[in-house]
Amino acid sequence: MTTTTTGFPDPAEDFTTSEGLRALLIRLHEGGEDAWVHDPVARDLMEFAADKYRALARKHKLDTWEAVAAAFDAMQYRSTREANDPWAIITHAVRITCIYEERAQGLLCSVHQARRAHVSAFHDPERFSDRDTAALADYHPAFHTTDTHPSDIDTEPRDGLGSAQACMSAESAAEDAIAILCLLDWPADTARASVEHVCGALVKAGTRQSAYEALRRDRHARALLDLPRRSWTALLKALLGNPNPAYAATTTGRGVLLRLLLGETLDLLLRDDDLILALALAAPHSRGGEPS
Rank of each mutant, 00 (worst) to 15 (best):
A137F: 10
V111A: 05
D152W: 10
E196F: 08
P187I: 02
Q76C: 02
H144C: 13
V195A: 01
A134N: 07
A135P: 03
A83L: 01
T146M: 13
I178Q: 05
C182V: 12
S169R: 15
A166Q: 15
D138S: 13
L183W: 00
K204G: 04
A191T: 08
E196I: 05
E171M: 13
S110Q: 11
R127Y: 02
F143C: 10
A74Y: 00
A179V: 04
A142T: 13
R115Y: 05
A104K: 02
S163V: 14
S172L: 11
D185G: 07
R116V: 07
L108A: 12
L215W: 06
R131F: 06
A104T: 09
Q113E: 14
L215C: 09
M168N: 14
T207S: 09
D124V: 03
Q113H: 09
V94P: 01
T148N: 07
G206I: 09
D154A: 15
S172A: 12
P86H: 09
P187W: 07
S210P: 01
D124C: 00
L161N: 15
A142H: 12
I99K: 05
A137W: 10
I178E: 07
R192Q: 06
T97W: 00
Q105N: 13
K204I: 09
M75S: 06
A174M: 08
C109R: 13
L202Q: 13
V203F: 10
C98Q: 02
C182A: 10
A83T: 04
D159G: 15
R95P: 01
K204N: 10
R95W: 02
A193H: 01
T97Q: 03
L215G: 07
Y139V: 07
I90S: 01
G160E: 15
E196S: 00
T190V: 12
S120F: 06
D124N: 06
P157I: 14
T97L: 03
L161A: 15
E175L: 03
A134G: 05
V119P: 05
A164F: 13
C109K: 11
S163G: 14
A191V: 07
A135Q: 11
Q165F: 14
V94Q: 06
R217E: 08
A83K: 00
A93E: 10
E196N: 03
G106H: 09
R131D: 05
L202I: 03
R127L: 05
D159W: 09
A205L: 08
A166C: 14
A191S: 01
A117V: 09
S120I: 03
N84A: 14
A170N: 13
A201P: 04
Y212A: 04
A142E: 13
D159S: 15
A205W: 09
C199R: 14
D85A: 13
Y139W: 12
A188K: 10
E175F: 02
M75T: 04
D176G: 04
L136N: 05
D138L: 10
A214D: 03
R115V: 07
